[in-house]
């Protein structure tokens, strides 16, 4: 935790930050790999929600180059295994996520990202 599935769903939500606010950029991170149980129904169900380019970028940033740049049409087992690994088995434990637009820093500590906004950042 933070897994890439989560990273793919979080956008900066500071006041007025509504464009170029996704994906957040990882900074000074510590990564751990942990095996997760494979469930192809879960992956297929989640696929329509994925921002593919953001996922590929994030995974490459973390040193995993297994995903193709374009989301394939055929969901064969080999592809689902790779997707599974990228979405669920790479955990960012420490570090921060930074908004590419307003540069808000969302710190990650013991695997929990702090997405709270400060007072002056709420709409």
């Amino acid at each position: 935790m933070v897994r890439l599935i989560t990273h793919n769903l979080l956008a900066c939500h500071a006041k007025g930050c509504t464009s170029n606010n996704f994906p957040l950029q990882f900074k000074d991170i510590q990564v751990e790999l942990r095996e997760a149980e494979f469930n192809s129904d879960f992956l297929r169900g989640f696929l329509p929600r994925i921002e593919w380019a953001a996922l590929v970028d994030a995974s490459r940033q973390l040193g995993d180059t297994s995903l193709p740049a374009e989301q394939p049409e055929m969901l064969d087992d080999d592809f689902l295994q790779k997707l599974h690994h990228v979405l669920l088995e790479i955990h960012v434990e420490e570090g921060a996520m930074i908004c590419p637009n307003c540069h808000h820093v969302y710190p990650i500590s013991n695997g929990i990202p702090n997405m709270l906004l400060a007072e002056h950042e709420i709409g």
């Binding site: 935790m1 897994r3 979080l10 997760a36 149980e37 702090n114 709270l116």
Partner: peptide, 10 residues
């Protein structure tokens, strides 16, 4: 392993 993630926010 089934706890996908925990996040702090309002």
């Amino acid at each position: 392993g089934r706890i996908v993630d925990l996040c702090t926010f309002d």
